[in-house]
Structure formats: structure tokens, C-alpha cells
Amino acid sequence: MEIRPATTADAGALGELVILMYESMGFDVTDPAADWMVALPRWYERRLADGSIAAFVAEQDGRVIGGCTVWILASLPREGSPDGRRGYVAGMSVRPEWRSRGIARRLLTAGLDWLRAAGADFAELHATKLGQPLYESVGFEETPAFRLRL
């Protein structure tokens, strides 16, 4: 099993992994023609091509079995982050039959290493219940957050 940087050729597989992640969060994934599901591969293709995101995949025998996506967000400077460079981790997903083998940890490590190299002062993510123990084990702390649909 290999962890490697994703390319635009991985866009479809990364989209499938995000759908698996959303399914575990209770999203309705029964309509493959849903606009958000159709948009996922194009989203990955565009952003991987323009460098606005980085993604890492776990590959076994030519099949993508896990993925992690990261990017830098602009933020106001604050204590511990004088440049206001904040990393975001998303799309962490491993196919169910490959879970509990340390693959997610290796993907997360690759993503965090990329964020550090890109100058992020800290990283944030939204955790599923399944992923929370992994994130806590590498030092993520729960913080209050609010969301408003516009």
C-alpha cells in the first residue's frame, strides 16, 4: 500500500471517497445524479490542477482506497498565527474494508506535513465520530464552531 500525492486522474476516486464520508455522516447519497455528487470530481480536477488544494491517496494494487484533502485558508493574524495562514483538512476517508489498518493516520500525516511546509500555523477540520479518536490522538482539540446556511 502506497501513500502518494493525488493527481487530476484521481478526481473521481476522491469524489467517491467523499461520498462515503458524507454517507457515514448521515447525508442522503442515494441519488448519484444529485448536483453536489456530480460536482465532486470536477471540484477536485479544477483545484488539483490549479494548486489551490493538495490531496493524498492511499493506493493498493492500482486502486485508490483512501484519501485526504488539505488547503490553506486566509485568516486574521492572531496569537500563534502571525501570518494568518490556517490549514484545513477535509475529505478524510478510507474504504470500509481497509479501515483499522493505520491508513487514515498515514494520510493525515501526509496532509499535515504538506500544511506545515505550506506555512500553516495550525490546522482545522470537522470530525466524524469515526474519525474523532484519530484526530485527538495527533493533538487536535475540539473547539466551538457555528454554521449558517446562506
Score class of each variant (00 low, 15 high):
75 S>T: 09
38 V>L: 13
28 D>M: 07
46 R>C: 11
34 A>H: 02
59 E>V: 12
143 T>C: 14
120 A>G: 05
103 I>H: 00
109 T>C: 13
14 L>Y: 01
35 D>A: 14
112 L>M: 10
97 E>A: 14
76 L>N: 05
149 R>H: 15
27 F>I: 04
32 P>L: 03
123 A>G: 07
98 W>G: 06
105 R>P: 01
46 R>G: 13
28 D>Y: 02
9 A>W: 12
115 L>A: 04
2 E>Q: 13
77 P>I: 00
93 S>H: 02
120 A>Y: 05
65 I>E: 02
114 W>P: 04
104 A>L: 03
80 G>P: 06
30 T>N: 12
133 P>F: 04
102 G>Y: 01
58 A>D: 11
60 Q>E: 15
91 G>A: 14
150 L>G: 13
26 G>L: 06
54 A>P: 12
46 R>D: 08
72 I>E: 00
124 E>D: 09
51 G>K: 08
112 L>Y: 09
65 I>W: 01
80 G>E: 03
66 G>T: 01
144 P>G: 11
147 R>C: 15
3 I>L: 08
62 G>K: 12
149 R>P: 14
40 L>R: 01
61 D>N: 09
122 F>L: 12
56 F>Y: 09
61 D>I: 05
119 G>R: 08
145 A>W: 05
135 Y>T: 04
117 A>V: 14
108 L>F: 05
70 V>G: 00
